[in-house]
Amino acid sequence: MIRDATRKFRERPHYTLDELDEISERAAAEYLTNKHGKAQYPISTDDLASLIEVHAEDLDLYADLSRLGPDIDGVTIFNPKGKPSIRIAAALSEARRENRLRTTLAHELGHTLIHNILFKRCTGPGLFDDEEVQTDRVQACREGSMLNAGQSDWMEWQAGYVSGAILMPATQVRLIITRRFPNYIRGNIAACGDLYEAMVEEVRSAFQVSSEAARVRLQKLQLVRDAGLTPSLF
Results as ranks from 00 to 15, higher is better:
120 K>I: 15
182 P>I: 13
61 L>F: 02
40 Q>P: 02
89 A>H: 00
73 D>G: 11
148 N>S: 13
215 R>S: 15
68 L>Q: 01
45 T>V: 15
194 D>G: 05
165 A>W: 05
157 W>H: 08
73 D>W: 06
103 T>P: 02
139 Q>P: 03
95 A>S: 10
18 D>H: 13
94 E>D: 11
6 T>G: 05
217 R>T: 13
95 A>V: 03
92 L>S: 01
136 D>T: 04
177 I>K: 03
121 R>K: 15
210 S>H: 08
177 I>D: 04
10 R>V: 14
128 F>M: 09
146 M>C: 06
105 L>E: 00
25 E>N: 09
33 T>I: 15
114 I>Y: 08
200 V>G: 02
52 I>A: 02
74 G>I: 01
2 I>S: 11
149 A>P: 01
17 L>N: 13
88 I>T: 01
14 H>C: 07
174 R>P: 04
53 E>R: 14
121 R>D: 14
165 A>P: 08
104 T>I: 04
64 D>N: 15
176 I>E: 12
229 L>G: 01
90 A>K: 03
157 W>A: 10
160 G>Q: 08
108 E>A: 04
25 E>Q: 15
199 M>R: 10
175 L>H: 09
75 V>Q: 03
123 T>A: 12
122 C>F: 09
225 R>K: 13
147 L>V: 06
165 A>N: 12
191 A>G: 09
28 A>H: 02
191 A>W: 05
151 Q>G: 06
134 Q>M: 09
49 A>T: 03
63 A>T: 00
217 R>A: 05
22 E>I: 05
1 M>T: 08
176 I>W: 09
164 G>H: 10
214 A>K: 05
199 M>V: 12
155 M>R: 12
116 N>P: 03
42 P>Q: 07
152 S>H: 10
10 R>C: 07
132 E>M: 10
31 Y>K: 08
56 A>I: 06
45 T>S: 13
192 C>E: 10
101 L>G: 02
155 M>T: 08
